[in-house]
Design a protein around this nucleic acid. Structure first.
Lengths: 107, 107
DNA sequence: TAATAATATTGCAATATTACGATGATACAT
DNA sequence: ATGTATCATCGTAATATTGCAATATTATTA
């Protein structure tokens, strides 16, 4: 069918999958890295840095934004996207929780 | 186009995306959790535990196997899939490396 | 207000993913 | 050998993702 059967999984499993999906495209990994290290990071910078068109970057940004990983600070005429460090750390901690509990039970 | 432009990204970015892709479906998260905690984990057990058909489970298992996360021990007439703990730990450590270096540079 | 710059949205084509029924392949038991 | 159980593969349908050109939106500047 192509659509995931979400209703058969636990909230925790769905959460891990959602987090992982954000990181499951190299362009989004690149965008996150670039946003983190730039003070004044805007979309056109990303278009220059990463070799994708402006609409495509914007689309990836939306995925990242929907995951709650962006804080937008408007400064002057340009947007300043900023990584939401709290949410980012939450991602890391939830993933580590999954890895730790899963590995601990391994036969 | 639907296909990712892999050539424009760094090996490290591609690696993170590949790892995340394995975890980006709740069924695979569930399979990993179940495989880790069972001594005698086989496909038909997974079919019973998770609410998906045997071919679908088998397909997800292949993704997990291709990522190097499975060690298969044949015991009697049933397969005993086992989580490759080393590879699993490597996944965790690479993800943490990404999170730590990225967060450290955040504005 | 008009022009410009930056980002978002829309529409569409190509490809990937998810899921399952049908069918194979393999190993064990009778 | 024949049957049965377990798992893999094939074929196919439905849906999702990726990417870009064209266009819209928004904010700033002249």
């Amino acid at each position: 069918m192509g659509a995931s059967k979400t209703e058969i999984h636990t909230p925790s499993q769905l959460q891990i999958a959602e987090i992982a999906k954000v990181l499951s495209h190299p362009a989004r990994v690149a965008i996150l890295e670039h946003i983190a290290k730039q003070q004044d990071c805007i979309c056109s910078d990303l278009v220059d840095e990463i070799g994708l068109s402006q609409p495509t970057i914007s689309q990836h940004l939306q995925v990242i934004r929907n995951a709650g990983l962006l804080t937008g600070n408007f400064e002057g005429k340009r947007l300043c996207y900023c990584l939401d460090a709290d949410r980012f750390n939450e991602f890391q901690s939830l993933l580590n929780q999954f890895f730790n509990t899963t590995a601990a039970q391994c036969c």
